[in-house]
């Protein structure tokens, strides 16, 4: 499947990916509502890019079976079925099932590739994984 790949060494924390994502999906430029988030750490590499790797751990714990894989292997949340319990947020091994205090349900990267087209350094890109 095609997922968003990352090369954190190239990330400059410019935030273009966050703006692209939140503007498209939530109609506002708000990095906390972006399904890809970048931040600085004091470790190596200093800049971290958080984006779903489509591992599917969240599927197992959803009590209402609102999370599933589509034919391309991408993990999707059915917004009509989701009851906003955030169990998926709690178990996400990469911290990339996001939640926001204004939103009833969580959100995540669905590998739409929009952010990768806006990244000026190719720190994010679409990549094929098994």
């Amino acid at each position: 499947m095609k997922i968003v790949g990352v090369n954190e060494e190239l990330c400059t924390l410019c935030g273009a990916c966050e703006t692209t994502c939140s503007t498209f999906y939530f109609k506002e430029d708000n990095r906390l509502k972006s399904a890809i988030q970048v931040h600085e750490t004091d470790q190596d590499p200093g800049n971290v890019i958080s984006v779903c790797n489509q591992c599917g751990k969240c599927i197992e714990v959803c009590p209402v079976e609102a999370i599933s894989r589509n034919k391309k292997g991408i993990v999707l949340i059915n917004k009509k079925t989701c009851v906003g319990c955030f169990n998926c947020v709690g178990v996400c091994p990469t911290g990339t099932m996001f939640w926001h205090e204004e939103l009833v349900i969580p959100f995540k990267c669905i590998a739409c590739a929009r952010c990768t087209k806006e990244c000026p350094t190719e720190a994010i890109f679409m990549t094929d994984v098994d």
Partner: peptide, 20 residues
Amino acid sequence: GRSNNPADPAKISKTGVKIT
């Protein structure tokens, strides 16, 4: 997630995510 129509849903979500 809002059926109980709470006064401060953000605080509930924050507390819930923390313990989960």
